[in-house]
Amino acid sequence: MALTNSSSGHSRLRWLVVAIPYLWLILLFLAPFLIVVKISLSATAIAMPPYQPALDFSAGLGVLWQQLKELSFDNYVFLTEDALYWESYLSSLKIALISTFLILIIGYPIAYGMARARKEWRTTLLMLVILPFWTSFLIRVYAWIGILKPEGLLNQLLLSVGVISEPLNIMPSTLAVYIGIVYSYLPFMILPLYATLEKLDETLLEAAADLGCPPIQAFWKITFPLSLPGVIAGCFLVFIPAVGEFVIPDLLGGSDTLMIGKTLWAEFFSNRDWPVSSAVAVVLLAILVIPIMLFQNAQKKASE
């Protein structure tokens, strides 16, 4: 907005432009996390809401100090005692890491092909990548159930061709979760990759070719290093949400597919243990805080 003039009316307007979204995010995004931390330190109770308030600011400072001393880390201790939790964290990180790598390998050639396509084709191709990205996540995961389940389309096809004689048990399994994550998050990788590859200065590659550099070597020495910002952005956009993914492991994964998003969901909706699910969320956030901050830095740099 045209508010860079420093007279008082302008600066008031300018102040409002910043303050309204700022306050909104503090109240509805930041404050909730503080409440999560607070509740993760409370004791579980059979009531509604199902926790004992840990801090009650209305009671005055003296009482508050008393309450501070009573804060319990029991929920966090509980997380370390039950193997379910740390196994879920580790398995989520593993699944997210492998998926990110697979998506990079699959997404790079697609983005590269798009960036090298003729100019009049590029907008259409770009829209074709964006379109599934606008379509519901749930629907796209659901579409795979019909394909992967034991009596599903893939097994029918393979059986009728005669490649297999017994239906494959792809779903539910961890393999199906990988397929689901790769499928759902692929556009998040292609879009930033395409954005950097499209801007690539082609004269560099021509110069390399003129000097006798073979195309594959030119790719590793020029194209790939220059596309790194897109690679980094894409990897963060895929990795961070994939760690906390719930829908995909819930619908495509088996009971042996542990992911922390699924564990948190079960803890909250089935066990109704709010303090423990808050503690699960706090630890998950602590694991993700470094990748999130790196992502923000990359975003900030890209927008400047």
């Binding site: 969320a281 956030l285 992502f295």
Partner: peptide, 10 residues
């Protein structure tokens, strides 16, 4: 990028 389970719970 925040996992939705965290935002939802918060």
């Amino acid at each position: 990028v925040m996992p939705e389970v965290i935002t939802g719970l918060a």
